[in-house]
């Protein structure tokens, strides 16, 4: 009796287990198919959106060599000048897959100021309006003085972006911090917030205002500059889009700058055009960043001014030379 009961019980358990198993199986299958349906739907939706956004982009009509008029996506045409809408869109998105990084070797800088000149001529600035400036630094009386080029640090945690009330200054996916002078209201909160004094303001009509009047505004070059708005270092985003090194980097005669992509772990020296491993360069030379205690996470690294290849005291400007 007892055995039968037990057997029954066992059978019941078996059945229960089978039921349980099949239910679990069903749920699993339902789950999988549900997920499949969902992801399928998501894929379709994403595709739809992609197609739709493609349609939104600019198209141009071009004449082929066999005299056919065809319509193709504007960005695929060579020599095509994108309109403001396109410039703003791609300028705010950045270059996918890149993480730009700059290394400044302080042991090589002798204050030639060629980087500054190149930058100012590219961005239409006056001699005292800086995206990048070279400073004479001395931490304390017993430590040696040195020259320090100082562009925008393109922080990964940028205080300027946090405080901007209108999203005029922003961080792109490729790490660059830009300023949209079509949006800037000129409150200068970002100047107050930046610990590196990296930003400038157009207090008066910019130097090339008349000549640039009819140019389309390129957010990656910040030209034409506009009165009453902020301007700043852009890591020469317009050059990066064309696979070129930034203006300052290419202009340096002393091999101070390396520039490249953190994702590739490779940086190129602007003077020698030599490409080296980013991690190795930083490791072997004791690379560091400015004011790490502020938590701003700059994308500009410095190599310490040791074993300098020139005599600082000879090149050092006098106190009064530091004023224009």
């Amino acid at each position: 009796m007892g055995g039968k009961k037990n057997k029954n019980k066992a059978e019941n358990t078996d059945i229960q287990q089978t039921l349980e198993a099949s239910r679990r199986d069903f749920l699993k299958k339902a789950g999988i198919s549900g997920a499949a349906v969902l992801s399928g739907a998501a894929a379709v939706l994403a595709g739809y959106r992609h197609e739709k956004s493609k349609n939104k982009g600019e198209f141009v009509k071009v004449l082929t060599t066999d005299n056919k008029l065809v319509k193709i996506a504007a960005e695929e045409v060579e020599g095509y000048e994108p309109g403001l809408k396109e410039l703003q869109k791609r300028g705010r998105e950045g270059i996918p897959g890149k993480k730009w990084v700059m290394i400044i070797d302080l042991s090589k800088c002798r204050n030639a100021r060629k980087c500054i000149e190149a930058c100012q001529s590219a961005h239409h600035l006056r001699p005292y309006e800086y995206h990048i400036n070279t400073l004479v630094m001395q931490e304390s009386v017993n430590t040696p003085a040195y020259f320090m080029p100082k562009p925008c640090q393109h922080c990964d945690n940028p205080p300027c972006v946090s405080v901007c009330p209108v999203d005029a200054t922003f961080k792109r996916q490729d790490g660059v911090v830009l300023i949209d002078n079509e949006r800037c209201i000129g409150c200068r909160f970002c100047i107050a917030a930046c610990p590196y004094s990296a930003r400038m303001f157009h207090w008066e009509e910019p130097v090339n205002a008349q000549a640039d009047k009819d140019k389309e505004y390129d957010i990656e070059l910040n030209v034409p500059q506009k009165k009453g708005t902020i301007s700043k270092c852009l890591f020469s985003s317009d050059r990066l889009r064309e696979n070129q090194l930034p203006y300052c980097v290419s202009a340096c005669p002393n091999g101070v700058y390396y520039f490249g992509d953190e994702n590739e772990d490779a940086v190129t020296n602007g003077t020698t055009k030599e490409t080296v491993k980013l991690s190795e360069l930083l490791k072997q030379n004791g690379g560091y960043r400015l004011m790490p205690e502020l938590g701003t996470q700059p994308r500009v690294y410095y190599l310490p001014p040791k074993n300098r290849i020139f005599d600082f005291d000879q090149d050092k400007p006098r106190e009064e030379d530091l004023i224009i």
């Binding site: 946090s162 209108v166 999203d167 949006r183 209201i185 000129g186 409150c187 909160f189 009453g228 708005t229």
Partner: peptide, 23 residues
């Protein structure tokens, strides 16, 4: 009176960013 572009005052509302103490 401190704004560089007072004509863009409406942007403070049109493009408002909640993170900014100005808003």
């Amino acid at each position: 009176s401190d704004m560089g572009r007072p004509d863009r005052l409406p942007y403070v509302f049109l493009h408002a960013r909640v993170q900014s103490p100005i808003l």
